[in-house]
């Protein structure tokens, strides 16, 4: 696999993924007795910047970004709630944008800058969003919280960049978006909180955005 390092990483990653997927598909479809035990795991060399630290890693292409973080790098702050992109507990920031880390293979994010909940605070100084979540009790069990906080941090940037949501009034017009409570609720709806701390979450985002109740 040495030659891979000189190639554009993302392209290689995709090819590797397709090969493995094909092999797996065959394996599942053939009778058990015809299995070829020689199937060896492929390893892909990747470089990430995770919470501002550069990491060179050899990665099983079947591993999701979520499992890479939790099981291989011991960054267990990012949570697995459904593993199917339905609950938002695994939300992390990739190049500053929020994604469900369970829905992407780790190798697909080669070269990217990844920020997890562990990377938001500056030393012992909490990110203002983290402080606001504590103050407004924007959680109970805390399991969805890392995803909620990462989502909320990205949300503020999205609003600043003028990205509209389904509830943005007069969506076609180019103008600053007012971060009303309805906007917050809509934009935080990719993160399920089974404890039902939604009221506190809205209050926390509102405060971290520096806005009063709208």
């Amino acid at each position: 696999m040495d030659d891979q390092e000189s190639k554009p990483a993302l392209q290689v990653s995709r090819r590797e993924f397709v090969e493995v997927a094909v092999v797996s598909g065959l394996a599942a479809g053939v009778p058990a007795a015809a299995q070829t035990p020689e199937i060896k795991p492929r390893i892909v060399n990747c470089t990430f910047t995770i919470n501002k630290q550069k990491q060179e890693l050899q990665i099983d292409p079947r591993v999701t970004l979520l499992d890479l973080l939790r099981e291989h790098l011991k960054l267990t702050g990012t949570k697995k709630g459904c593993d199917h992109g339905q609950c938002g507990a695994c939300t992390v920031l990739v190049d500053g944008r929020r994604i469900n880390s369970c829905l992407t293979l780790a190798i697909m994010q080669n070269g990217r800058e990844i920020t997890t909940i562990e990377g938001l605070a500056a030393g012992s100084q909490l990110h203002p969003m983290q402080t606001a979540f504590i103050e407004h009790d924007g959680f109970q069990c805390g399991y969805c919280t890392p995803g909620q906080v990462c989502s909320a941090v990205a949300l503020l940037d999205e609003v600043k960049a003028g990205a509209p949501s389904a509830v943005t009034p007069r969506m076609g017009e180019i103008r600053p978006i007012e971060l009303s409570d309805d906007e917050i609720r809509e934009r935080m709806s990719g993160n399920i909180c089974r404890c039902g701390a939604y009221e506190g979450i809205v209050a926390a985002v509102r405060e971290a955005a520096g806005r009063r109740r709208v």
């Binding site: 960054l75 504590i134 805390g142």
Partner: peptide, 10 residues
Amino acid sequence: DGRVKVTGRA
């Protein structure tokens, strides 16, 4: 337990 929960350390 707020601080450990919002920092992912719980």
